[in-house]
Design a protein around this nucleic acid. Structure first.
Lengths: 356, 356
DNA sequence: CGCCGCAAGTTAAGCGGTTAACCACCCCGT
DNA sequence: ACGGGGTGGTTAACCGCTTAACTTGCGGCG
């Protein structure tokens, strides 16, 4: 059932069959019909490898993610796969497990597969890999790396916009003591979020004491531990911005264990908006990192550089934004406390004045 | 940088280069060395498509899942990708979105790619697809379909064993009124779990009234709705076995909204053991569907049929088992209630006896 | 009427490997 | 001295498709 069988069946040359399949040359309707019928009657499926070999064009793209079982990724993968499917591409899924060596092995395989492009949605990236890809002129789209170049696009997620909204939200609710649970120091995304948090605080709460920052590991337990540290500190913040939802959920768990009510005792904002953010108890207010949009734009950018090779990559921007749910509220108890304190304070003052 | 460049560089024929790469023929150490050096100095990467075309062997496998964003799948995908990677295979990820047409499109593409094998981890399966695959003699491994055959293996997950453990667990805690929230009627996996539940109940609680069964959609909201129905019914069960964790979590949410305490007022057992089962509040007792094992065994079975074509597929079994966490407990309140009722009852009896 | 140009196909040369068949050489036994 | 067989490598035919270049036939135009 090869193209030559179809050609024989239709009484034409293989070239003609190829042309009707690919629409690469005008063919009369009657010939086209004959060919199509032959294709059907032979139950002919083209051989993609032969096609790629002959044409130099492949319809496979590589998708690298750090860890598909991290709840951030599935939706991203889904949207990428979806966009690729629509455009006729197949995606090879690569799970690096945060392992640079494994990523390198895979990049080699992808190059051997002559992939049309690569979506590097990992956080950890070896620059040698990128060089390798660049040397082979493989179109690439990154995620928050900040480098674009020939064949290299980047979808930059504007973490700051969402963090700003989060801080603004807390401040407008009346919070003045806001802490942050950051991600691991060496993660770029963690560093950006941390800085964005500090900037926003500086902007909105310039007179308040500088905010406490705790560091977690981006996982549930890291959130628990950080919350433990917060509880151990002498002054509890009333608001908390957490660098990802998993840690936010972990922190909520720990606070609840300690008998705190959320949001009455402490308001919490997460980051990412993973599926479970909406399902937690209470539903988590969080900053949405729109993964469906990220995936779609990544493929758009990749396709653009695939179509016209030699083109410079583009830098696409995606905003993050706050999704208010039920873990944030006016810090009523804290405000009452402060009011009480200032009342006592003024009463004391009055007394001393009276004494004088 | 093609094989002929390497051959020229090393001063040998392309055949020799091919042989040292693939270890297909003995080559003297000095020649081998020369070739390897040439490969390195040319920075040569073999072309996988040419290799596949010439050899007829591909190192791509197709992995079909219904929906990667369903929390059941990521871990399965991960273990499959992992096992495939180790064996030198690349996986093309296919997200069918529960759409038979899309699955069909993809199967065609996979055949065109001459994939070495296909892992059909979807719930919905068109028999035409399977025929197509069978006709092309593509090795396939299913998930709970129950058909094996030439080139077709199946990893059967023994849902019943876990359900049995769950029911046993509840019964041994003292539960006598146990209900079930089932999955959508037309899902095979849902039907099997439902039947396993009924069987277990019949085995352990033959004297009790036949258990109530509610139907959900395998999603969080379906669990909420089902829980709503349960609350609306006149007699609350003390124990609940839910067909998957997402619905169990939804049900917990609903019960909590209604003011019930878990597990004091109602014990809940989920199914799947998704990541969030352990993170819920309280952590969910559930039946673990060991996805890492399923994935690994699926690839093992697939590889077996790939290696020796013409072999009959095997049927692999995987047990599910109960993971006890904190949503199950002795139905204290219910027992107290019943005790109270029976006391009243006997008191009433005594009264009537006295009267008599 | 002869020639041009276009329309519709065909021919055949790759694409980059694999591998069966073949060859040259050398060692060894008789 | 000579044939046989093993060793280490080469030759070249393919795998199935694409596509540039070429052919053929025909209508239109000067």
């Amino acid at each position: 059932m090869r193209i030559k069988d179809v050609a024989r069946e239709a009484g034409v040359s293989t070239a003609t069959v190829s042309h009707v399949i690919n629409n690469t040359k005008y063919v009369t309707d009657v010939t086209r019909e004959r060919v199509l019928r032959a294709i059907k009657s032979c139950n002919y499926y083209a051989n993609a490898h032969a096609r790629t070999l002959a044409s130099g064009r492949s319809n496979i793209i590589g998708l690298l993610v750090s860890d598909i079982s991290n709840p951030f990724f599935p939706e991203l993968v889904k949207s990428i796969e979806d966009a690729a499917f629509e455009r006729g591409y197949n995606v090879i899924l690569v799970n690096t497990n945060y392992d640079a060596r494994r990523a390198a092995d895979y990049v080699r395989r992808l190059i051997e597969l002559n992939v049309a492009g690569v979506a590097l949605m990992t956080t950890e990236l070896d620059s040698k890999l990128i060089d390798e890809l660049a040397a082979r002129k493989v179109p690439v789209v990154f995620h928050n790396v900040g480098t674009t170049g020939e064949h290299m696009s980047d979808v930059m997620v504007d973490y700051a916009s969402g963090i700003e909204e989060a801080v603004e939200h807390l401040v407008s609710l009346g919070h003045r003591r806001i802490a942050h649970i950051a991600g691991p120091g060496l993660f770029r995304s963690a560093a950006i979020r941390r800085q964005a948090f500090l900037d926003s605080i500086a902007r909105h709460l310039s007179d308040a004491p500088s905010p406490a920052i705790y560091e977690g590991d981006f996982k549930f337990d890291g959130g628990r531990r950080a919350a433990g540290e917060i509880l151990a500190a002498n002054e509890l913040p009333t608001g908390l911005v957490v660098a990802n939802d998993l840690m936010a959920l972990g922190a909520m768990h720990e606070f609840r264990m300690a008998g705190l009510k959320i949001p009455q005792d402490i308001s919490i904002v997460g980051f990412d908006d993973i599926t479970f953010a909406a399902l937690s108890q209470p539903p988590l207010t969080t900053v949405c990192s729109p993964r469906a949009e990220i995936g779609k734009k990544a493929i758009d950018a990749l396709m653009a550089t695939i179509k016209q090779s030699g083109s410079a990559g583009e830098e696409v921007r995606v905003r993050t934004y706050l999704v208010v749910r039920e873990t944030t509220a006016t810090p009523a108890r804290a405000i009452a406390l402060e009011a009480e304190q200032s009342r006592k304070l003024s009463a004391a003052k009055t007394r001393t004045q009276l004494k004088a």
